[in-house]
Every structure is written in structure tokens, then in C-alpha cells.
Write a protein that binds this DNA or RNA. Structure first.
Ligand SMILES: Cc1cn([C@H]2C[C@H](O)[C@@H](COP(=O)(O)OP(=O)(O)OP(=O)(O)O)O2)c(=O)[nH]c1=O
Ligand SMILES: [Mg+2]
Length: 374
DNA sequence: CCCTCATAGTT
DNA sequence: AACTAT
DNA sequence: AGGG
């Protein structure tokens, strides 16, 4: 079971994993599944989880080979998204009605319905190249391009990569970075940070977002959003003060600020095109030293933490933009674009005028984009 | 036929 | 500008 | 794979 948090809102979960609603539905139900995740309810048990798990391997394989933006990747990701949103698939005819599911995917689904597995998925899982690329991209700073290039040059293992000495930070924390955090771990880390933030400037409201908020039992990082309710402007300068304090306390190691929008090593004023909307977000991606407590943690663990500070007037956009899933965000931005807006975690903007629409709450975002709140 | 999320930091 | 990161 |  997933320990799903009860959330009202459109479909964000691409991690759902629960028993099915075994109601047999008319074929029209499959054609009626909205193409985009933003039009589906969430959280919702995924009746096709086993199938999705098989297909997800092939999606990962495409991501690793071509990158997440390639046509091969996008078509797979969107099709799987539709399958996640569908009722339980019992036969190919039902699957055929799903948007984004074409002939090639139908063959895979047919195979799964007949045999309970997909041979290509299993082969992929076991393939040396898949395992190598997967492992290599787990190093911070190594993406798809680098991994493929290294592989072509015969560098195919972490050990070989380590010897190159090109990713000192990536390898310094590599082992701990592979460890997923329980929900209790996430809460514990968040509380450490809350205590320090309260010393920096009391009165903040903080929320855990990302996979945690979608109900995942285990997260690869912590996404912590902070704001000062009804106190527009009070958030200014907070991030660097907070980072400074966490560094001073040793809760972030000296080399633990992986990057930060207000802490840049030595950058001048980012002379962005003047038409650009100023991001109302300050963010930092850090390595956090989660101290041992002698009970559940026998030693310190290094955790990846995203700290985001938002102005109160764009709190809703920040919540929507950082709750995910990634596919949900892509769908949402696509909808916004088609309706003449631009959405990002820092706010919702009118594309023509560049004017920012106030989004105090999540519902404000959906209302402005005319997306039903499910 | 082109696009498929938007943005920011680092190299 | 390419890459990686969210 | 599908929208425009
Ligand atoms: C990676 C990524 C994230 N996001 C948003 C949506 C994500 O839910 C949110 C946080 O990103 P992540 O922390 O990378 O993802 P996650 O929290 O959903 O899952 P986990 O941490 O367990 O791996 O940021 C995007 O909009 N685009 C992206 O490409
Ligand atoms: Mg996360």
C-alpha cells in the first residue's frame, strides 16, 4: 500500500500503485480517458500498475537512449500517462481506444495481457547497456548525453568513471544519494530546516511538496516550500540567510550547496531579456546532513534537499509547480500555452502582456486555466 | 512538417 | 551553446 | 502518438 495522502485535485500521480476498482466498464470509458493528466482526478488507484511497471522500463530505456525531450520518449511517456489514467484494461480492444496508444504499444499490451509480462522489458532490464547507462546517470552531474558518450568510449561502470575524477561532488555523496527516504525521514529533515528558518525569520509557512505530497512512500529528495503568509516581501533575502545558517551549523557541508539562485558562486546580474518575468522564487539545491539519532539512524545520512522560497502572492503557483508529477507539469504547461498563458512554478503569466495573474492558492491556477478541480 | 515544459546554473 | 538539474 |  502506498500511504496515499488524501488530496483533492487533478491527476498528479504517476507513481500510484494500489489495487484496482474491478468494475467492468463500457468501451466508451476508455475513449473518454482524457489525454492530459491535468483533466484526471488524483489520487486514484492505478488498476493497470503491473502493465505500467513493465512499460516504464521501456520508457526509461528510451529516456536513456534519446533524452526525455525526444519524440521517442514523449510518445511513450504520454501513452503511459493515458494508461495510468485508464480503467483496468482487460483486452486489446479497450486499449485500442486509449488516446496516444498506437499499433506498436498495442502489441506490447497484447503480450502483457496474454503472458503477464513483456519480453522486451525483461531483456532491457537485463541488458548490460541499460544497466550501465542507468547506473552512470545516477551520478550527480552526469546526464543522458554524457552517459552515452562515456559508454561509446568504453567507460561503462561507476569505477571507471570515478577514476576519471571528473565528478568529485557526485562521487563524494554517491552512496547516500541512492538511498530513498521514508516519509518519516522527509518529515524529520523538514523539521530540522524549519527550526533553523524560524531562527532566521519567524512566521514562515512551510510545506513538503514533490513526490511526498503525492503520497509516495519513498522519495529521492525533499522538496520544501517556504512562504510568509500575508506578508509579501518578507521572504526577500531569506534564502541566503538560511543557507548561511545551515552551513554554519554544519547541517550543510561546505561543498553541499549544489546550486542556488541567490548564492551563485560568482555571477553578475543575470541580464535576462528585459521582457522576462522576474522569478518570484528563490531556490537552492543542497546536500543536507541528516544527523544520527541513535535509534532510527545509526549514522548521519546525506540527503538531497530542494529549498524553495516564494512570495505569498504566488504561493499557489509554487505549490502546483513543485508537486508534480513531472508529466503533470508538462501537461499543465502545455494547456497554459494553448490558452495564451505561460505557467511556471514562479507564477502564471499572460503571454501577450507578460502580466502575472495572482495565484495565492492552487485553485487560483486551475481556475485561471479553466481546468476543473476534481 | 514541426513540436511536444520552462527555467536556471555551470562548463 | 550544450548540458544537467529541478 | 497526435495536435496544429
Ligand atoms: C524533474 C522535473 C521536475 N519538475 C517539478 C515536478 C516535480 O514533482 C517537482 C519535484 O521534482 P523531483 O524532486 O525531481 O521529483 P519528485 O519529487 O516528483 O520525485 P522524487 O523526488 O521522489 O524523485 O518539480 C518539473 O516541473 N519538471 C521536471 O523536469
Ligand atoms: Mg522530490
Amino acid at each position: 500500500p502506498q500511504d496515499r495522502v488524501h488530496l483533492h485535485g487533478p491527476s498528479r500521480d504517476h507513481d500510484s500503485r494500489s489495487p484496482s476498482d474491478s468494475i467492468s466498464l463500457p468501451p466508451s470509458a476508455f475513449a473518454a480517458v482524457p489525454t492530459l493528466s491535468v483533466y484526471r482526478k488524483s489520487p486514484r488507484p492505478c488498476p493497470n500498475q503491473a502493465l505500467v511497471d513493465e512499460l516504464a522500463v521501456l520508457r526509461s530505456w528510451r529516456f536513456l537512449q534519446h533524452g526525455t525531450g525526444a519524440p521517442e520518449s514523449i510518445s511513450y511517456a504520454t501513452a503511459i500517462s493515458a494508461i495510468i489514467g485508464a480503467p483496468k484494461i482487460d483486452n486489446v480492444e479497450q486499449a485500442r481506444k486509449l488516446h496516444k496508444v498506437g499499433p506498436k504499444l498495442l502489441i506490447k499490451i497484447d503480450e502483457f495481457l496474454t503472458t503477464g509480462k513483456i519480453a522486451e522489458s525483461e531483456e532491457t532490464r537485463n541488458s548490460a547497456k541499460f544497466k550501465a547507462l542507468d547506473e552512470m546517470t545516477s551520478v550527480y552531474g552526469v546526464g543522458q548525453k554524457t552517459a552515452v558518450e562515456l559508454y561509446e568510449n568504453g567507460i561503462r561502470s561507476l569505477e571507471q568513471m570515478r577514476a576519471l575524477d571528473r565528478w568529485p561532488i557526485g562521487f563524494k555523496y554517491q552512496e547516500d544519494m541512492q538511498i530513498k527516504m521514508s516519509r518519516a525521514d522527509c518529515e524529520s529533515v523538514a523539521n530540522f530546516i524549519r527550526i533553523q528558518l524560524d531562527r532566521v525569520e519567524p512566521g514562515a509557512h512551510t510545506v513538503l511538496l514533490g513526490g511526498y505530497r503525492r503520497g509516495k512512500t519513498h522519495s529521492s529528495d525533499i522538496d520544501l516550500l517556504c512562504t510568509y503568509p500575508h506578508e509579501e516581501g518578507k521572504e526577500k533575502g531569506i534564502l541566503s540567510r538560511l543557507l548561511y545558517r545551515l552551513l554554519a551549523k554544519g547541517l550543510i557541508p561546505e561543498d553541499g550547496v549544489l546550486w542556488s539562485s541567490s548564492f551563485a558562486s560568482h555571477n553578475v546580474a543575470p541580464e535576462r531579456a528585459s521582457t522576462r518575468s522576474f522569478d518570484s522564487l528563490d531556490k537552492a539545491f543542497v546536500i543536507f546532513r541528516h544527523p544520527a539519532n541513535g535509534i532510527t539512524r545509526k549514522r548521519d545520512y546525506f540527503r538531497r534537499v530542494d529549498i524553495i522560497i516564494t512570495a505569498w502572492s504566488t504561493f499557489g503557483s509554487a505549490v502546483v509547480g513543485w508537486t508534480g508529477s513531472t508529466q503533470f507539469e508538462r501537461d499543465l504547461r502545455q494547456v497554459a500555452e494553448k490558452k495564451g498563458y505561460k505557467f511556471e512554478a514562479g507564477g502564471l503569466f499572460d503571454k501577450q502582456t507578460g502580466v502575472r495573474i495572482p495565484t495565492l492558492t492552487e485553485k487560483d491556477v486551475f481556475r485561471a486555466l479553466d481546468i476543473p478541480w476534481l
